[in-house]
Design a protein around this nucleic acid. Sequence first.
DNA 1: GCGGATCTCTGACTAAAGTCAGGTAATCGA
DNA 2: TCGATTACCTGACTTTAGTCAGAGATCCGC
Lengths: 294, 294
Amino acid sequence: MEPASITQVRSFNRLVTERIGALNDHFLGRDRPLGECRLLWEVADEGAEVRALRQRLGLDSAYVSRLLRSLERQGLIEVGESDIDRRVRLVRLTAAGRAERNELDRLSDEFATSVLEPLAPGQRDRLTQAMAEVERLLTATLVEIDLTDPADEGGRWCIAQYVAELNERFDAGFDPAQSISASEGELRQPNGALLVARLRGAPVGCGALKFHAGEPTELKRMWVDRSVRGIGLGRRMLRELEDFARAQGTSVVRLETNASLTEALALYRASGYREVPAFNDEPYAHHWFEKQLG
Amino acid sequence: MEPASITQVRSFNRLVTERIGALNDHFLGRDRPLGECRLLWEVADEGAEVRALRQRLGLDSAYVSRLLRSLERQGLIEVGESDIDRRVRLVRLTAAGRAERNELDRLSDEFATSVLEPLAPGQRDRLTQAMAEVERLLTATLVEIDLTDPADEGGRWCIAQYVAELNERFDAGFDPAQSISASEGELRQPNGALLVARLRGAPVGCGALKFHAGEPTELKRMWVDRSVRGIGLGRRMLRELEDFARAQGTSVVRLETNASLTEALALYRASGYREVPAFNDEPYAHHWFEKQLG
DNA sequence: GCGGATCTCTGACTAAAGTCAGGTAATCGA
DNA sequence: TCGATTACCTGACTTTAGTCAGAGATCCGC
């Protein structure tokens, strides 16, 4: 890591902590503890389960309970029981609570305005663009890629998204039953592996391997959610899959893909994959690739 | 203000608070209250005055006192008297304190590394560049421009810097005694005005006006510190000077400048100043400008 | 229908981060 | 030189943001 980059990140942190942190507290404080604000903020208009709030904010159950009692006393929320599971409690905003949340919203807008206000229009554009860039790249650093069981909710969701997207993008649609199989059993160790990328717990991408004793390992189900494209997640997923394959004793990885998946084609080419003659009869494929793992 | 910009700033705040804030606390916490860390951090190697620490961190005097006692008990600092003013107390780091600060430094580097680490080299460059841009522009929003007495320390310092810079940049040097005067008395109301730009209290630029009853107002002493160039501060200073002049009943502003001050020339031209024949015999000037205030 | 797990709550506790009032010593300004 | 101001300190207090243990109600799998 170059020292100049590190210095830049540190100085950025310092400034942002000063500027954003201080004003955030000041503007959003409004005589109310930050914890209560955060909680109020997280209760959507349709209400929220207490356990969901707890998890999203990463707070202790006793603490959340106390915060809820306080907000209840202030008449901002009502806590009722869930119809489905009577252990679970549902938090709903009262009219006053909704008003308070709108007020927080307004203050947040006001704060953003106060940041932009001293700048000339051209500078505002430069600032928001640079902010967007920082945000995208910092978001990228928050993504975690982990081995997941294909039957897990996140894994299933990703694969469903993958299928839906291919169906939409391929001229003739995509029916996984016509395609070479990649069933849950085939993507579970020791037959294969499924890696799922998650951003704050929510799945945003996947990639899978199918092992074949004495034969090259197949790469399947590469998919990245639209919301996080362009931050190098595909490349990272590919690297992690290769690392995993190597660790399992794979020396050659191969895959096939459709001509309409231009980003994927570019990714494979840029990642050292060499186009080879068709090594299977996948009906949806136009290109076959292979890579020797170093 | 466009809603899209506001949304961008808000979403940036949220992410940065999450990512930087949380990890900052975690990494820099090291079993020590944040207040103590911040204080330790602010004590430079040559030591610091207690009042300076208090002011820089914006903390209550009682609270700082208590934090200092705690750090003293831990053997990290020594508090002694100032030679100049025996009410003032000087904080100095002990060897242990210095070691602890180096450790904080190391952790801060480690944190920065952890932010950059998951990214590919190209993305790292993009991130640090975008961070630098955000930092420059946010810094711009922290600059405050205020009317200042020319005898004030900040005002004198700016004008000294202005003179030093012209002396360095003009081929034949610059001697203010040979130039048209802009003495402290002339830059004080009602004769004139001096605006000083400050960043966190430190002066970083100035600009002055000289009023002449029934005649155009003169613009003098426009200067911006090298450390904050390129963020539109000159333009902002010029606008504020014009606003001030207008409020004092001025309808025409004029100024003269040297050909070597290319940024200033560009600024005046871009700000609606029209080049006019020489209206005085300033020996250092090559260009004379005039603007009708709307 | 029973044992274990889950969800929420209360009570008791703690550390951090302050605030406020008042006091002492030194210095500054008229 | 004397009263106001400044710098710092102590003691007493508060709020915020938690943690931990345990209880009660409910649900889930066998």
